[in-house]
Computed example of a mutant assay.
Amino acid sequence: MTPSSSFHIGFVGVGRMGANMARRLKDRRFSLTAVYDIDQAKTNSLARELGCESVSSPGRVAERADTVLTVVTDDAAMRQLFNPAAPESLLAHAKDRLFINCATLSPSVHVEVERLVEQRGGRSLEACMASSITQAREGRLYLMCGGGRDTFERAKPLLEVLSERLRYIGPAGEAAKVKALVNMVMNCNTAALAEGLGLGAALGLDLTMLREVFAQTGAHSRVLETDGEDMQQRAHDCYFSAAHAAKDSGIAVSLAETVDLELPLAKATYEQYRRLVALGKGELDKSAVAELTFKDRLSSN
Rank of each mutant, 00 (worst) to 15 (best):
P3K: 02
L263T: 15
G170Q: 06
V213Q: 10
G146D: 05
Q232R: 13
H8M: 07
Y239K: 11
S241Q: 06
A290I: 05
G147R: 04
V109T: 09
V289A: 08
A202G: 11
D39G: 09
V213N: 07
A19C: 09
L46K: 05
S5M: 01
V259C: 13
S124D: 04
G280W: 08
V178I: 13
F7S: 00
A243M: 09
A256W: 03
R274T: 04
E112G: 06
G228L: 05
G282N: 05
Y239R: 13
A201W: 08
N20F: 05
A155S: 14
E138R: 12
E153W: 03
E229D: 15
L207E: 01
H220C: 13
S300Q: 14
F11S: 00
A278P: 06
R154C: 10
L158D: 03
V161K: 05
R29E: 14
R274E: 09
V12Q: 04
A191E: 04
V35F: 10
T269E: 07
R123Y: 11
E225H: 11
R234G: 02
M184R: 00
R149V: 15
P3I: 00
D96K: 08
F99E: 02
C52G: 09
T43P: 08
V111M: 13
F99S: 03
P157Q: 05
A194P: 08
G122C: 09
S124T: 03
A22D: 08
A94T: 04
T43Y: 06
G200P: 12
F99G: 04
S249E: 06
G13P: 01
E271K: 12
E53T: 10
L116Q: 07
D206H: 10
M17C: 06
Y270D: 11
S131V: 08
P58G: 05
R274N: 12
A155P: 11
K42D: 06
L224H: 07
G200N: 12
R120M: 07
A77N: 07
D96W: 09
L141H: 07
R28G: 06
L105M: 14
R154G: 04
F82W: 05
V213E: 02
